[in-house]
Every structure is written in structure tokens, then in C-alpha cells.
Write a protein that binds this DNA or RNA. Structure first.
Lengths: 229, 229
DNA sequence: GTCTATAGTTCGATAGAC
DNA sequence: GTCTATCGAACTATAGAC
């Protein structure tokens, strides 16, 4: 009888694959993509280097999968933030705050995912993954216009511009050691920038301070083995 | 007698090298980076494919040089635009207009340089080449604050945000066929976005229409063999 | 899973410059 | 006569088809 994969084997394979990815995430979060060797991933995952290539065709493919997992989690967090708040303005501010705070919390991983030069494959992936972020902002903008909070605008273009502004303004701070209050400065500047950009006026009654809402997913900083990632 | 490079040969070598780069620019402007083969470049330049590798170590290196030449020209155009206008507001608007109009004029080349997935080397080059653009905006912002046109802000962060907003909002339109009035819509939305973002208020007296100023360099659309590129 | 096509790269040969 | 710019075919790797 020919060899057939039993459910038991399937499960073990999936577990190994998962362990590899977890190790990759941890190492990339600590040192970035380039500085993470296949050997290091294998060692950390407790498998041989050769086995890595049974599960993934290349280092780039591992990172691609890491990229997608991390991005999905971050997008979910931002989507959740887009629901919390009584005004569109607050929801928008919360999304910006959520995205950048989470990036700062795990800055090396954020840097690796968002800006580290990797290869064309990841570049293409990055382009595709801007869409869900754009959609979050598009929806908030349409909502805000409908509610009369801001004047009408070219939603799609403005949503793209926000995505670009966010990522680019984090690029520098993420790659340098940043103090906590420098981080606050960046988030504040970025938030003001975007709110003004879409037509909100300064509001003296509020200092744009936001109470935290519970995250949809566990914090990005602890890549627990027992997590659901 | 040993062989030595004479000035005559030096010149011819430089000319050949230049011809290769011109061909590369033309082809990339027509089809993008990926779709431009080394064979095509060689044929267009009238040399063998092998010779390409005497002048450049790889396709990536050719594109790197194309990137730098095109970027230098575009930066110069934007720097010039930053000098034309009576108010900081107008100068800022002119830079945004100049950058995006020139990108649209040669959208495929702009797309290849700004966003097409190429490789890590070009990614790194892109990161470095944001600095001069950031500097243009930083200077304009400092100027505007000093003149009391806009309230104080975190110049460096905001300058980065503008760069990101510009590039990202062009990404979509550059990669699709865009009508002239769609192009106008993008530029208008982007300009409004940035002006508002940094603290300018709408000004009913002006529709943000800008008279063209003579370019510092010849237009990007005609990659003339006789040009100074 | 093998086969094919395509595109990047390499290399030995040639011919022309010194 | 020696050296090198150039050529063009061969090699290699990868992605898509059957």
C-alpha cells in the first residue's frame, strides 16, 4: 500500500511548520530580515536547516508568510480601532494611534515588514497589503463626509495619501532608537497631520488623548508560542 | 609595448556606456523594469549582451544608475519649483504640482523608479533618495512657520509624511491608464491634502491654479540622445 | 512531476588598439 | 606582439505548460 499521510502526520507537519514560522517571527523581530539566517531559524525551531526547505522553498517565502501573518493581525487591530469612538474623527485618530503605537511596540518587526529592503516579492506583497489599510481610511472618510464632519473629498486618493504619510513618517523613527516621548511626538504630529489633511479643524477642547481599547489580538510584542498566530 | 587606454578610447567607452543607459531609460520608460530584457537593451544600444556586463555588473546595477540619473533630474526640478512663488504656500503647491505632473508625463518611468518591485538594492536606493525630497519640504515648512503662514509643527516628521503621501497617492494612478482630468483630480486632491495637513486654510480667492515656470531641465518625456542626461 | 521557454549571466574567441 | 573591447553562443535558474 502506498504511503499516505495520516491525520496524525498532517498535524505534526503543521506544528513543525508553525514552529518554524514562530521562530522566524521572533528572530526577525529581534534582528530584522537580513540579519536572520536560515540556520538561526532552524536552530531556534529545533529542526535541521534542510527541513526548512521541505516546508518553504526559500527564505523569501518564509518572510512572505511572516509578512502576511503579522499584517493580518495588524490590520485586524486597526479595523477594530476603526469601530471604537463616538465620532469619525475619534475613530480616525484611534486607527492612526493604534497602528503607530503597535509599530513602536515592536519596532524592529514593524521595520522589517514595512520598510526593510528585502526583495521584489515582498515589495509586491507590500503593495497588495496597502489595500485593506486604504479601505479602513476610505470607510472612515466616507462616514465623516456623510456625517458632515468634514467637507467632501476624493476619498480614494486621500485614503492612499494617509497610508503613505503614516508609513513614511514612521520609517525614520522606527529605524532609530526612540525615547518614549519622542514616540509621542511622532504620533501626535502624524495624527494632527492627517486630521488637518482631511479637513478637521483643531479642537481646543481636546488634546487628542485616547483611552486604550482592548486589542482584538494579543499584543504584537510577545510572540508567544501558545498564541493563536 | 603594453596596452594603455588612450583618451580616444576612454571617450568611446564613456559613449558606449551612455548609449546603454539611454537605451535602458527609453525601454524602462516604455515597459518598466521587469519587462525590459538585457537583450533588448543591448539591441537598442547596438551592442552585444556580453558587453553590457563590461560596463555594469548586473541588470540591477543598470537600473540603479538609471534610478539615480532620473531622480537627480526630478529632484532638481522640484528644488527649482521650491523657489518660484511669492508665498511659502505657493512654493509648496508648486513643488507638489511639479513632482506629480512630471510623474504623470512619464508615468511608466515614474512608476518604475518609485514603486515597481525590483530588488533590495533598489529598495535601499529609494530609501536614501527620500532625503532630498524631505529636505525640500522641511525647508519650505520652516520658512512658512517663520513667516507666520502656518502654526509651528514637527518639521521633520511632517516633511516625511508629505513625501509618503505624495508617492503613495500617485502609486495607483501611475499604474493605471489615467485621463487628463483624472490626473487633475489627483493633483488637486493631493495638493489640498498637503496644504491642509500642514495648517493652511482654504483660500476662496484662489483655485490653486499655477502658471508653469520654465523647467531647470528638459522635460522628462523625451529622452533625447543628445540630452545632457 | 517533467518539459519547455525565457531571461540573466558567464566565458572563450576574435579583432582591433597600443 | 600584447592587451582588451567586443561579440555571441553557452550556461543556469526559474516559471509556466502539459
Amino acid at each position: 500500500m502506498a504511503y499516505r499521510r495520516t491525520p496524525k502526520i498532517e498535524t505534526r507537519l503543521a506544528e513543525t511548520r508553525d514552529r518554524i514560522l514562530h521562530s522566524a517571527i521572533q528572530l526577525i523581530a529581534a534582528h530584522g530580515y537580513k540579519a536572520t539566517s536560515m540556520d538561526a531559524i532552524a536552530t531556534d525551531a529545533g529542526v535541521s536547516t534542510g527541513l526548512l526547505y521541505r516546508h518553504f522553498s526559500s527564505k523569501s517565502e518564509i518572510f512572505d508568510e511572516v509578512f502576511q501573518r503579522i499584517s493580518a493581525r495588524e490590520i485586524a487591530a486597526c479595523q477594530a480601532a476603526a469601530l471604537a469612538g463616538s465620532t469619525s474623527r475619534e475613530r480616525l485618530a484611534r486607527v492612526l494611534d493604534t497602528f503607530s503605537r503597535r509599530a513602536f511596540r515592536d519596532r524592529r518587526l514593524a521595520w522589517a515588514v514595512l520598510i526593510e529592503p528585502v526583495d521584489a516579492r515582498i515589495d509586491a506583497r507590500r503593495l497588495r497589503f496597502r489595500t485593506p489599510y486604504r479601505d479602513i481610511f476610505s470607510n472612515l472618510l466616507r462616514e465623516a463626509v456623510a456625517a458632515g464632519e468634514i467637507p467632501p473629498l476624493a476619498v480614494e486618493i486621500v485614503a492612499s495619501a494617509i497610508v503613505g504619510a503614516v508609513v513614511e513618517s514612521l520609517a525614520g523613527p522606527l529605524s532609530t532608537v526612540t525615547e518614549r516621548d519622542e514616540e509621542d511626538r511622532v504620533v501626535a504630529a502624524l495624527t494632527r497631520f492627517c486630521l488637518h489633511a482631511v479637513g478637521y479643524r483643531d479642537d481646543a477642547s481636546r488634546g487628542e488623548e485616547l483611552k486604550p481599547v482592548p486589542d482584538v489580538s494579543s499584543t504584537i510584542c510577545h510572540h508567544q508560542r501558545d498564541g493563536n498566530l
